[in-house]
Simulated scan of single mutants.
Amino acid sequence: MKPVVSAFNAWTCIVISVFAIVILSAIGSMFANNNHTMMGSEEDPEDGGKVAAAVFGAVAVYGAFLLFCGSQAFLHQRQSQHGEIALR
């Protein structure tokens, strides 16, 4: 199987996805626990659980990106070990 994206794009996507998963998981857990820093103002949402569900949905999307880009990076790694010439 051949990779769809370049190795640079795959590794960039991996790094961005990991950071996004970590940061959004922290934000989602704060909304899920009705943390006062997220829910303390009058302009903040009423239901922290619904906001947390939306944020965790975004975490799932970034998880899918991470799996796809990880598989692309794996394919590039496997190709380079077999001595194939990479056109960049």
Rank of each mutant, 00 (worst) to 15 (best):
M38G: 12
V18T: 09
Q72L: 04
H76G: 06
A64K: 05
V59I: 05
F65D: 08
D47K: 02
A52G: 02
S17I: 07
S71T: 08
V15H: 03
S6D: 07
G48L: 00
V5R: 02
G70I: 13
F65L: 09
F31V: 05
C69E: 04
L87A: 11
G40A: 06
R78V: 04
F65R: 10
D47T: 03
Q77W: 07
Y62H: 07
S6A: 00
E46C: 08
I16W: 01
E43G: 11
D44E: 10
A52S: 04
F19K: 15
V61M: 14
M1T: 06
S25M: 08
A32V: 10
A52Q: 03
A60P: 00
V51W: 00
I14L: 10
A54M: 04
A53P: 04
T37F: 13
D47W: 05
E84H: 15
Y62V: 14
I16F: 11
S25W: 00
T12G: 08
A20T: 10
V4E: 03
G70D: 05
V5Y: 09
V15L: 09
I23D: 14
N33I: 01
A20H: 06
V15Y: 14
E42K: 11
A7H: 05
A26Q: 12
M1G: 14
E43T: 13
E43C: 03
V55H: 05
C13K: 10
I85N: 04
S41F: 06
L87R: 01
G70E: 03
S80E: 12
N34G: 06
V61Q: 00
Q77L: 08
P3S: 07
F68I: 00
N9H: 15
Q79I: 01
S80V: 01
E46N: 05
M39H: 07
Y62G: 00
G28Y: 01
Q72S: 06
M1D: 12
W11V: 05
P45L: 03
L66Q: 07
A20D: 11
A20V: 02
Q77H: 05
I23Q: 15
A7F: 12
F8H: 12
S71W: 12
L87Y: 02
V61E: 00
A86W: 15
I23N: 13
F65G: 01
E84P: 02
S80A: 11
N33H: 12
S41G: 14
F8V: 14
G40H: 10
L87K: 02
I27S: 01
S17Q: 04
A7Y: 12
G70L: 11
P3G: 10
A53E: 15
L67P: 01
S71I: 06
I85E: 10
A58H: 11
H82W: 10
R88F: 12
A58E: 04
E42P: 07
E43Q: 13
V51H: 03
R88V: 09
V15A: 13
A86L: 15
N33T: 13
I21P: 09
I14E: 02
A20I: 15
F19L: 15
F8Q: 09
C69Y: 07
H82F: 09
E43M: 14
N9L: 14
A86P: 13
K50Q: 12
A58V: 05
A32R: 10
A54T: 00
I85Q: 09
R78I: 05
A54I: 02
S17D: 02
Q77T: 14
W11G: 02
V61H: 01
I23S: 08
F68R: 03
M30W: 04
R78Y: 05
G40R: 09
